[in-house]
Design a protein around this nucleic acid. Structure first.
Length: 499
RNA sequence: GACUCGGUAGCUCAGAUGGUAGAGCAUUAGACUUUUAAUCUAAGGGCCGUGGGUUCGAUCCCCGCCCGAGUCACCA
């Protein structure tokens, strides 16, 4: 491989250090403190606890001034300054010249406050823990008079940041907050479900028949069996089989894979949570969903109010609930319920929709909804009672013909959750899947595949059940304020650099 | 997939209406024993994304390709 001037120099210095008998890659190091512990808790220089601390981290800045030097090291909790004085480090001080920004070191010493008031470690011993060969795209920063952090020449190239997330995490330290919060959100969600006695399960990612959603799958091949396998597009059908099997509450948090376009709301692999609870319906599930989101907000962030995309969003219970056709009325001024196909087609022009004239009834309805209604749903809103044609796994509405018992939760104009009273009449389910098979035969690549074994499970019998799916990445985006899905994924899907 | 914008030193960027490039930080050497974007002095560092074309000559103009960002389409 080709090396830069700076890499060559660092490799040469590494050899110099090794010639001096220094192990540049030792096996372990005993830390007593984190940077943040010291910065927040250190009070006076007489205290016993801080007279001999040991910390470790990556060198982020070096300021050499002849026989004394300062540097900042960064650990998982933050930065702390080190003070190195030649008199105190007779063995080491000259070798320090061979250390670079990016090297990881261990330090022992006592904590003190410098003339300018910065809590620092007066170093008595320094050990190299890892030599860094490739320089970091380090940025300079200062704290201005208002106390704001000002960063000069920040590492901003999106491509490199996503491809080398490890570098991004070091240099753009603050991005880790969103990832830590992502972890806490998921953890809180698990805690909520576990405390209700629902069981976390794992179902196949490699599936001979994919289902549970309308989407194009990734396909792969199993060599020993010599069969095609699909990467799952949803957990739904397997989780319902477990409800048939007698579990009364199961959930799964894991990746789905959809072979479709990618943008700031979509990544080919994304994390979904799906939960199914027996003997419940979608009304119950709405209550549970708002309680869940409200608890996550309060327990992780200590608030139910968030600012997203310059809008204030409140996850305080209860969320608005509105029937789909009532929302049509509200935002288009028209009652679309029972409207016939020709009248509906006229609306394509009236609303300037960019869809083909011969689009299906539900496609037009769906389009009007996304264009005319969805953008208005900023605050968490349950949209309820959907047309049966676009919901092949949902149970018919108990009182409204042509509708199913389904809700979707919208926040900031985007879909966050989808749920139904699950269809458990095997005859109805067969009819609906056969219709999907027909659509498929007519060229709808996303229509569902008929899964005989799933139908067999329903014939064995599934109790009344409520099911819910939540897009975890989108939930994390809303709660952390990130507007691109790539900023809540450590490693967003990227095209390889060399095709 | 379509359109728009972008790719120049390790990083952030500037640049020339075509004559093989410049700044700040980073790096190297020197000075400096409480600095903090440390400072001061000097120096090195570039197939200007990639392949063609036009031209005496291209990093700059034209065409193709690669990668990214944004918008749209599809979707969660």
């Amino acid at each position: 491989m080709e090396r830069t001037e700076q890499q060559i120099r660092r490799l040469e210095e590494l050899e110099l250090l090794e010639k001096d008998g220094i192990n540049a890659f030792p096996y372990s190091y005993e830390k007593t403190h984190n940077a943040l512990d010291i910065i927040t808790k250190f009070k006076d220089e007489q205290s016993e606890e801080y007279s001999n601390v040991s910390v470790a981290g990556r060198i982020m800045a070096i300021r050499r001034m002849g026989k004394a030097s300062f540097c900042h090291i960064l650990d998982q909790t933050g930065k702390i300054q080190l003070y190195l004085k030649k008199d105190d480090l007779p063995e080491f001080y000259d070798k320090f010249k061979l250390l670079d920004i990016g090297d990881i070191i261990g330090v022992k010493g006592f904590v003190f406050r410098t003339k300018t008031g910065e809590i620092s470690i007066h170093s008595k011993e320094i050990i190299l823990l890892c030599k860094s060969v490739t320089p970091l795209p380090i940025a300079k920063e200062e704290i201005d008079e208002q106390g704001n952090k000002v960063i000069y020449d920040a590492f901003t190239d999106k491509e490199t940041r996503y491809r080398q997330r490890y570098t991004d995490l070091i240099v753009n330290y603050d991005i880790r907050k969103a990832f830590i919060n992502r972890s806490k959100i998921i953890s809180e969600m698990r805690h909520y479900f576990d405390s209700k006695g629902w069981l976390e399960v794992e179902t196949p990612i490699l599936q001979p028949i994919y289902g549970g959603a309308t989407a194009r799958p990734f396909i792969t091949h199993h060599n020993a069996l010599d069969i095609p396998l699909y990467l799952r597009i949803a957990d739904e059908l397997y989780l319902k089989r477990l409800i048939v099997g007698g579990f009364e509450g199961v959930y799964e948090i894991s990746k789905n894979f959809r072979n479709e376009g990618m943008d700031k709301m979509h990544n080919p692999e994304y994390t979904a949570m799906e939960i199914y609870v027996a003997y419940k319906d979608y009304n119950w599930m709405m209550d549970m969903t708002e309680d869940l989101l409200c608890s996550i907000a309060s327990n992780v962030f200590g608030t139910t109010t968030f600012f997203y995309d310059n809008k204030e969003i409140s996850f305080e219970k209860p969320f608005r609930r509105a029937k789909m056709f009532d929302l049509f009325k509200e935002y288009t001024g028209m009652d679309l319920k029972g409207i016939n196909y020709d009248e509906l087609k006229d609306l394509i022009h009236k609303f300037h929709l960019e869809i083909p004239e011969n689009s299906s009834y539900t496609k037009i309805l769906d389009e009007i909804f996304s264009e005319k209604v969805q953008p208005h749903l900023i605050q968490p809103t349950f949209v309820i009672d959907y047309p049966i044609e676009i919901s092949p796994l949902a149970k018919k509405h108990r009182t409204e013909a042509g509708l199913v018992e389904r809700f979707e939760l919208f926040v900031n104009g985007g879909e966050l959750a989808n749920a139904f009273s699950e269809l458990n009449d095997p005859r109805d389910q067969r009819n609906r899947l056969e219709q999907q098979a027909l659509d498929r035969a007519n060229g709808d690549e996303e229509a569902m595949v008929l899964d005989e074994d799933f139908l067999n499970a329903l014939e064995i019998g599934m109790p009344p059940t409520a099911g819910l799916g939540i897009g975890i990445d989108r939930l994390v985006m809303i709660l952390t304020g990130e507007t691109s899905i790539r900023d809540v994924l450590f490693f967003p899907t990227m095209k390889p650099e060399k095709a």
